[in-house]
Amino acid sequence: MKRALVVDDALTVRLYHRQLLEAIGFEVEEAANGIEALEKGLSTPTPFDLFLVDVNMPKMDGYRLVAEMRQSQELQAIPVIMVSTESRPRGRDLALQTGANLYLVKPANGALLQQQAQLLVGAIEQ
């Protein structure tokens, strides 16, 4: 089973993303900010296959989180989808610069997000 960590300070958004991912067979955990996400990512016995990360969060924001991930031996290869309310190209550019593998504007299209998540983690094969 693929495992995903949903990182967002908004409980509603976490729930939304959790429901989407669980519906396609993911096992989902949640974190409310970057620090929590790093802690969960580093301490989990079964590694995550995907991080779904919000940008604007307290304590440690999404950019910082992804940058930390990309420098961490354990987390650097995990695909990251970044989700943000920032619809201007600047938001996407920054996300890709820090190392996100996909940038989506909130609210993400549910069906699309499901397929994208599956493709990024290899849950769809021939």
């Binding site: 650097q76 290869a77 094969e125």
Partner: peptide, 19 residues
Amino acid sequence: LWTGRVASVGAVLRHLLTV
């Protein structure tokens, strides 16, 4: 950040190319 970026893109590419 470069090594991490390449590693994650690599992981994603492997899945995408498999499809």
